[in-house]
């Protein structure tokens, strides 16, 4: 028996919004530590890694490890039926070929259940090595979303250059060029609004705007985003989900031909 109940059901709604444009299908791997999902987009340019810890749920039970392959478009459709304040419960029997989503309104007066067929997905799983990154940048997630949206008007690619002075986002295209520089916040009153840079070595990398814009669908999950970069390795864009886990996106850089 698998059962995971979340009073803050809107978290699951937001998680689906954060992955459904990038991934068409994915496997939810559940064990007694929680729920993990790892999947690449169709072009194998980026990778999504989601972790929701068991202790972040209001009730969590997983008697046997279970892998549930799901069509994410279908899951998103079902979760759209949940109210923002609803409690969401996911449950499945051992070896089941369906999963059930139960939504309860705050006053318990409306209870809905949606049963969905599971899929047998044979998806490639990648090992992500432990990496010490040369630069980590923490910044407001809404600011990052704005920068990605604004710069993608200028070109398909965005250069992210991090030095100890700050971080510069640039794009160049037919209409011209755009540069956005963010300095490290001098004094941190509210950590959520700060730009904080930790740098061992300066790094400049180029990334496809389209994927960065997909990642920013996770903005509502966290007020802050963390970017981690080292030369010649994938960028990590991490949104922490309060008290329960995180969603990380890995994006391969573009390189000179």
């Amino acid at each position: 028996m698998f059962e995971a109940r979340l009073l803050r059901g809107s978290i699951l709604k937001k998680v689906l919004e954060a992955i459904k444009d990038l991934l068409t299908q994915a496997t939810f791997d559940c064990d007694d530590s929680g729920i993990q999902l790892q999947a690449m987009d169709n072009s194998h340019v980026s990778l999504v890694s989601l972790q929701l810890r068991a202790d972040g749920f209001d009730k969590y039970r997983c008697d046997r490890n279970i892998s549930m392959g799901m069509n994410l478009n279908s899951v998103a459709k079902i979760l759209k039926c949940a109210g923002d304040k609803d409690t969401v419960t996911m449950k499945a029997q051992d070896n089941a070929d369906t999963v059930t989503f139960v939504f309860e309104s705050p006053n318990q007066e409306k209870v809905s259940d949606y049963e969905m067929k599971l899929m047998n997905l044979d998806l490639e799983h990648l090992g992500i090595p432990e990496t010490e990154y040369s630069c980590t940048i923490r910044m407001p997630s809404a600011e990052f979303a704005r920068i990605c949206r604004d710069l993608s008007q200028f070109g398909d690619s965005m250069v992210i250059a991090c030095t100890k002075e700050g971080v510069k986002f640039s794009a160049t295209g037919e209409i011209g060029s755009a540069n956005i520089k963010l300095a490290q916040t001098a004094s941190v009153d509210k950590e959520e609004e700060a730009v904080i840079i930790e740098m061992d070595e300066p790094v400049t990398l180029t990334f496809a705007c389209q994927y960065l814009n997909y990642f920013t669908k996770a903005t509502s999950l966290s007020p802050q985003v963390q970017l981690s970069m080292s030369a010649d390795v994938p960028l990590v864009v991490e949104y922490r989900i309060q008290d329960i886990g995180h969603i990380r996106y890995y994006l391969a850089p573009k390189i000179e031909d």
Binding site: M40, H44, H125, L126, G127, S157, V233, A252, K254
Partner: peptide
């Protein structure tokens, strides 16, 4: 510039 795939960096497990 060319776009590398993520599998060029991370290997199958």
């Amino acid at each position: 510039m060319s776009q590398k795939t993520i599998t060029a960096y991370f290997s199958s497990r």
